[in-house]
Design a protein around this nucleic acid. Structure first.
Lengths: 206, 206
DNA sequence: GCCCTAATGAACAGCGTGTTCATTTTTGCT
DNA sequence: AGCAAAAATGAACACGCTGTTCATTAGGGC
């Protein structure tokens, strides 16, 4: 999904090497954490010569950032759909318990990238990624739940309001990934909407 | 606040060295990020011999973890007060716009540690710290806003409910720190409570 | 099958690591 | 003030990782 950008397809060997490095990176992030492994380890795990690594990436960070960028670029394609959602659509979906299609797509995509996401957002991952994911996923969504009056008129409180919901949803996604994605994408789409309209102390039903 | 635990006070030289290393760590985390500086850099910045560093810490990570642990230990002292808050108290405080004293204390403490917190939670910081801060600060608070029915009976949805609010508050704290703590601790205590009882699409007033 | 390009293995200097040790400086205590 | 304990210093060490180069081998594209 991420390498159809260039005009001609990459050499099969390059694809294999990059794929192997991706897998090795994920495995080592989980096992040891970013600072605890070397380019040597990476290449040993990927069963590649160290020179091959340097053919494609400047250093360990370059590899990590490249993979992160791919995911963020993919997510940006969802933002189009998010921008077109209205608050009334959200309310209707929530009352009918009918998952919003684009939210289902989003959770499906996240599930497809789960191995990478868990590695890079877990302990031993990269601090910088979570805020990027949050902004890519939540910014447009939050716009829609804001009272029209405050969209163009950001008071300090409104900025905390936005931070509140954006972080809240990042937390939900993170928990879903961390707990092994037990819920289906449809269930998550419903949960995400129920959470929007809940108040503390209230009963959860409906 | 963190070193009165032992029976006798530490040697003045040790305190000075550790303080210098703390400051150097914070500065370098901000400037270059955790992976981009060495123990050498740390000691140069702290104006200390490299041997001195290894007298007190095993490695770069040991220093970082030690400082993180101190903050978490400090925060654990607030949890006592948090556990005693009831939902009705929250509601009363929110209606009267009267900041809860223990929340003010909390934000005061965070302000006092702002340099460290910003460094360790910002880009170039440590992924593992934010979840620890979240759990230390939010876990008990969330307990109180949960409907009694769900406290002892965690369904999947309830666990997302908890993750939602816990992450939301972490995001608010993070934003406050990142934007230079423009609001006073009292203002933040009020904002934190207002956010609890807001619903998307509603007007913000009251 | 031929050309092009990627992967390999080996070698290199440079740097940071973590440790050791003898020496100097600073404390805490009487 | 003076002594003994403890911390800081500076230098040296072997070791491992880095990022680069180069000749060679293997594999893909057409």
């Amino acid at each position: 999904m991420a390498d159809t950008g260039g005009a001609c397809v990459q050499d099969r060997r390059i694809v294999r090497s990059k794929r192997a490095l991706r897998d090795a990176l994920i495995a080592l992030l989980e096992e040891r954490g970013y600072d605890a492994f070397t380019v040597n380890d990476l290449c040993a795990r990927a069963d590649l010569n160290r020179g091959t690594f340097y053919n494609h990436f400047r250093d360990k960070e370059d590899l990590l950032l490249t993979l992160e960028d791919e995911v963020i670029a993919d997510l940006d394609r969802f933002r189009e759909s998010m921008r077109q959602i209205s608050l009334t659509q959200l309310l209707r979906s929530r009352l009918g318990r009918a998952p919003l299609p684009f939210l289902v797509d989003l959770f499906d995509y996240l599930r497809g990238q789960a191995d990478f996401l868990r590695a890079v957002m877990g302990p031993g991952g990269d601090v910088r990624f979570a805020p990027r994911l949050r902004d890519a996923v939540c910014t447009d969504l939050i716009e829609n739940i804001l009272h029209e009056r405050y969209r163009e008129n950001p008071t300090p409180f409104v900025s905390y309001y936005v931070a509140f919901y954006a972080s809240a949803y990042l937390g939900v996604i993170t928990r879903w990934l961390e707990t092994g994605m037990a819920e289906s994408s449809e269930e998550m789409a419903v949960i995400a909407l129920r959470l929007l309209f809940i108040k503390p102390g209230e009963s959860i039903e409906l």
